[in-house]
Design a protein around this nucleic acid. Structure first.
Lengths: 300, 300
DNA sequence: GTTCATATTTGTCCTGGACAAACTGTTGAC
DNA sequence: GTCAACAGTTTGTCCAGGACAAATATGAAC
């Protein structure tokens, strides 16, 4: 499997880099340098695919490709190791224990450890503190090469399961606002949505979860059909930031002015400035603020 | 929103048709016929995007694009209405009641109706009969234009929530086989995986769910790390069938021969012939057969 | 009716050019 | 010292039109 060669389509799938981008990097920076098959089509060795994945991950953190592709392997791994040790952790023992369980590939124990931690801390603390720290820790471990992709998948799957279970267990709210929760097409990260849904439902808001990747026109229709007060979108750090502003403007233009539009997730923080009628929610705690503000305004 | 123009990238997102495909259709068939912006770039009117979505959906059913793009609007809608009325339904009242609830946009009632139906029928019957019928009914309603995309999303989200809840409630199994469940990159449909996980866990198998879109190399690593006996992949009908055989061969070559490879979902049925060591599971009931066969072979 | 060989359809890949948006860094005003 | 405006550079995406192989349809022979 490690000596396998990848077609350009396979590399696009595995790295998230568009075919056009892969070709233009080759032309400009001299990397990657795929072999060619009998038909002149590119064949990428798996080592280069690995490197491309690392580069993509660093780009999601804000590094620029021109520097990265011409860097040595040592420089790349140095960058991948965060210089700043993560600041004060609430309970480092719990975190590292869970990380170890993921690495231990013991699904059942992992699940019960997560459940137990959630119950011990209470849902709101768990979501505001522990889950984001776990997400970061998993992401950083991946960057340092300590985590496999499938281990990240396993973690995400278990966390998703847990959060959905927690949501189901919450009482049905009817207090408002009515919030449509989703992501735009191409954005498939779901944990941000689920964390938001938890927090909002905990506070008595009514959530209409549409899952990920709803076409813009359908977000507008959903907002109308469900008489939504708020549309909340989640953008992960991996989402190409240049695509965010046009998407948001188009959506804002389609929604009635009375419907609020909230943006959250790591991909929304890098926005220069939000257009009128768009609220950037930089962190999970910000959701509670936004909710409080909305309610205050609604009673006026 | 309806008069909005779409860039070629937006159309690719919303329809699932690759940019190259959109350009070559324009060249060959004279459709679509996008306008151009000041910079010469294509701008697709939303009506054409709608038509493209319908064409894509019909192609997923096996129709060929050459016929579809040159067909009139009437012919298209005629094709979209299934000629064959769906065969014997177990309990048509329940099905149509749930469909009406989705259309009624009442999330809470929908959720409790689904939960209630599941409990009434028992989990296995629910998954073998009702859920596939609901999926089909939702898909057909979409085709006939009776369902919005966001309504399909809402349905999928609620069903997903319900299935995950059911899985969590099942006792932890330790009997074997150990089954890694996932989809390949680009394949994001999750319900097939969850239904399979339910059935397998009900029968006492141990599932290692990786969620969707695991890169091939990582599926192999996961199978090894988790000492899997079986890797089960789900392909939806929407997955480009031409991509399935190379993907499956590559994966089969990477997995140890002792690890079984099962393919399920609507996209696996159209395969001409499966390579050696690959089992195509045409329906959900087939999973139970495959499981029984595996256990029989294991005791030999 | 089945099987094989030929023709058509169809998606994806190729090259190399172009451009706009985003980012960088410098200069000058306050 | 801070900020704003400007010019230069970087970077992703789009374009055209040609090519080819795999999938599918068609027709001939048995």
């Amino acid at each position: 499997m490690n000596s396998a060669q990848f077609s350009i389509a396979a590399v696009e799938r595995d790295t998230g880099l568009a075919k056009d981008t892969l070709r233009v990097w080759e032309r400009r920076y001299g990397f990657p340098t795929p072999a060619r098959d009998a038909n002149g089509e590119r064949l990428y060795p798996s080592a280069q695919v690995e490197r491309l994945r690392l580069i993509k991950r660093l780009m999601d953190q804000g590094f620029r490709p021109g520097k990265l592709v011409s860097a040595s392997d040592e420089e790349l791994t140095a960058l991948a190791t965060p210089a700043t040790i993560a600041p004060a952790r609430v309970d480092d023992g719990t975190l590292s224990a869970i990380i170890r369980l993921v690495k231990g590939h013991d699904v059942a124990t992992l699940r019960s450890a997560l459940t137990q931690t959630m119950h011990r801390q209470g849902l709101q603390n768990f979501i505001l503190d522990t889950v984001p720290q776990l997400n970061t820790a998993v992401g950083e471990a991946w960057m340092r090469g300590e985590f496999e992709v499938f281990e990240e998948h396993l973690y995400t799957e278990q966390m998703q399961s847990l959060l959905r279970q927690a949501i189901s267990a919450l009482p049905v709210a009817s207090r408002g606002p009515r919030v449509v929760l989703t992501t735009v097409p191409e954005e498939q990260h779901v944990l941000g949505l689920l964390m938001s849904e938890c927090l909002l439902t905990l506070e008595g808001a009514t959530c209409i979860p549409l899952g990920t990747q709803t076409p813009l026109a359908d977000i507008v229709r959903a907002a109308s059909a469900h008489a939504a007060d708020v549309v909340a979108l989640s953008f992960s750090a991996a989402f190409p930031s240049r695509q965010v502003p046009p998407l948001v403007s188009q959506l804002r233009a389609g929604l009635p002015p009375a419907v609020a539009l909230w943006l959250g997730g790591g991909g929304s923080g890098r926005l220069r400035s939000a257009p009128d009628g768009v609220r950037v929610v930089p962190s999970l705690a910000g959701i509670l603020e936004a909710l409080a503000d909305w309610r205050q305004q609604a009673t006026r």
